[in-house]
Amino acid sequence: MLTRALIVVLAILNVGVASWWLLRSEPAPATPPQPATGVAELRWLPGGTDAAAVAQTAATTAPTEALQEREAAPSAAVAATEAPATTPPAEAAPSAEAAPAVAAAEKPAEPVVEKPVVEKPAAPPRCVALGPFADRAAAVAAQGRAGKLLAPARLREQPAASGSTRYRVLLPAAASREDAQAMVKRIVAAGLSDYYIISQGEESNAIALGQYRNREGAERRIAAVQAAGFQPRLVASGDAGQWWLEGQLAAGSEPAQAQQRSGAAQQRSLECTRLR
């Protein structure tokens, strides 16, 4: 009884398997997994080709077009990510004219070493005596012509060789003897001494206030009399002396130039200490 039941069950199973085998549809081909980049793709070839030979052939041959396209796509993506978003414009190279200026700007400035200025020593002053002139008036005129070529300048009278020249200080002659005596009283009241009234000659009734051998002494006497309120005059007597114009030459001028300008007949070197 049990044996029959098993046979029936097996028969039913066989019928069911046969029905399923006949009625089933073709299975969809499975999508092969995507190979990694750089690995050759393996494909199933119909006709019973040996899989080992196919794999060896695929390894030794170049990748297919599809594989090349897939390899190119990741390479482009990597290049896009590595490249900067925007490429700054290249700086223009400096022109030939601007190159020296750029080089000068980049080069550090060298310290300027100032050389000490050596001042030339001033030339020593030179002094001259110009003359001789016949009288004081001629010497004064020569001083005016010389101008700034002689500064400072002074007039000097050189007595005659015989030494007979004398200088007298006189007050003008009065109208009468009484007027001359009245003038003497005024002189005494002013504190002056060394006076006398001339009684003869062209200078009668004039008042003499001193006689001197050199002009300098006579001029000092005149200054004292003028300070007392009188107006004396200087009178030279005896052999006439000579007048000289003495002074210090201006910077850059020559003695010959001063001589020509003043009209002097001679010029002599002079120590400048004598002018002080």
Rank of each mutant, 00 (worst) to 15 (best):
A72S: 14
P35S: 07
L42K: 09
A105W: 07
T81F: 07
P255Q: 02
A101L: 10
F133C: 02
K115H: 13
A105E: 09
Y167M: 11
D194G: 14
L149F: 00
R154H: 08
V235D: 03
A99C: 04
R43E: 11
E65L: 15
A256H: 06
L209I: 09
D239R: 11
V169G: 06
V15Y: 04
E71Q: 13
A59S: 14
A90F: 10
V118T: 15
A175R: 12
G238W: 00
R213W: 05
I187Y: 08
L275A: 01
A129R: 07
P152E: 03
E26L: 10
G201F: 13
Q266N: 03
W243F: 05
E106F: 07
D50K: 01
R24V: 09
D50M: 09
S269W: 00
A76E: 13
T57Q: 15
E106K: 11
R154F: 08
Q266C: 01
A79C: 04
T61S: 14
Q242E: 11
L6W: 09
R220G: 15
D239Q: 15
R154K: 04
A134G: 03
R43D: 08
C272M: 02
A138H: 02
Q200L: 11
G191D: 04
V169I: 10
A105R: 01
G201D: 13
E271S: 10
W243M: 00
D135V: 02
I187H: 06
V78P: 10
Q260M: 01
A53E: 13
S25W: 07
K120Y: 01
A66F: 12
A258C: 05
G217C: 13
A141S: 11
A83D: 09
A129C: 03
V118L: 15
S164I: 12
V102C: 00
A240L: 04
E114V: 11
A161F: 05
S193C: 01
A175Y: 08
G16P: 06
L67G: 14
Q259G: 00
K185A: 09
R166S: 12
V225P: 00
A62W: 02
A264S: 03
L2R: 13
A30T: 09
E110W: 04
I207H: 00
A206H: 00
A138R: 03
W243T: 00
